[in-house]
Design a protein around this nucleic acid. Sequence first.
DNA 1: GACACCATACCAACCGGTCGGTATGCCTTG
DNA 2: CAAGGCATACCGACCGGTTGGTATGGTGTC
Lengths: 207, 207
Amino acid sequence: MAKEHSARTKLLQAALRVIRTKGYAATSVDELCETAGVTKGAFFHHFKSKEDLAVAAANYWSETTGAFFDAAPYQQLQDPLDRIFGYLDFRRMILNGSMPEITCLAGTMVQETYDTHPAIREACNASISGHAAKLAIDIDKAIGTHGISAEVTPDSLALFTQAVLQGAFILGKARNNPEIAAECVDHLRRYFEFIFQQSPEETRHGD
Amino acid sequence: MAKEHSARTKLLQAALRVIRTKGYAATSVDELCETAGVTKGAFFHHFKSKEDLAVAAANYWSETTGAFFDAAPYQQLQDPLDRIFGYLDFRRMILNGSMPEITCLAGTMVQETYDTHPAIREACNASISGHAAKLAIDIDKAIGTHGISAEVTPDSLALFTQAVLQGAFILGKARNNPEIAAECVDHLRRYFEFIFQQSPEETRHGD
DNA sequence: GACACCATACCAACCGGTCGGTATGCCTTG
DNA sequence: CAAGGCATACCGACCGGTTGGTATGGTGTC
């Protein structure tokens, strides 16, 4: 159904790049077609509307990023707590690049569509909440094996990590500098160290 | 220069409401005029372009929110650390309302304009970074009077609070529920408690 | 009468979406 | 295997409506 270099896939990849750069509303169908190197006819053959493309792009985003994190090296660690810190260090490490490359499509789109395009909102929510749910599993296990000092639920804490990341992207965009995003992840990591009562020296830090 | 019910002010207030609901690009000049109850002639008399309106709206946002937080009751507290927790509890308290009412104009606009409209990006950055700078002053004082366990800078920590808030808004929009935003502020408060070594019972909690 | 303030009429460019048509390949039937 | 039948993939001209922006003229106030 989804060959590698079909017009549909090229349009989805173009959508990731363009929408992350200028948002959903400012992205025109014509520009998408030009970036993908296909015609308008191809666009409306595969997607019944611009909104439909946005939903498909959010789902495509969920699939590709899901596979990306599933294949990350930290997933091989046995201890769930190690995987959590591995995840945080990994997220900090991949903050290298330009803003359109490192930001989240779902977070960008949902900002301007949550009230006007329910279908897009739901697809973006599935992407963000689904990603958090995977992390919540490890958090739950880590609480079971390592204990915890504060009363926090795995789901709430996992969603908080996504909030920090989304906010870090906004700060990075506003200041035109991804560095601040890395600092935010550092704070987030320190919060996890506090919660799981680890000294900062006990685990290796990103750089 | 800025009478209370002038066409200019009505347009700025309309911009806050509409742009926070559907974003900058999806907001048309016509809709802004209709919402404000003025004509297009008035719009282009006061603003030389749509982008100019956006910059003015971001500055208007900085002014009004700045005055709002300056007048908040927690500012009367003597201890800078009390003011910090007062700020966090206040931010949590004002998370009542619909998403367009409680979200940040600057954070919403900068997402879709950072790469294409430098003037808007800079105005949004001034709003967010300026707000953080005020908080950083109290953080700096609190570190001086109370000490601190981890090595964090006031600026970095203040910006982190803004990242959490911005991310909390995105989560709230994605899940169509402001409640998750409040939970994020709870986590943020706990992080501050860890950093300043306060037990959670020592200070009064929001509700 | 100069100026700020605003209303009305209008424009060219661009928008999302439609439509008639073509190229290709697979399946079926003889 | 030849031919018919049909589905998928794609093309690009075209459409009505909307866009940000302009041009011009009126009206109240100093």
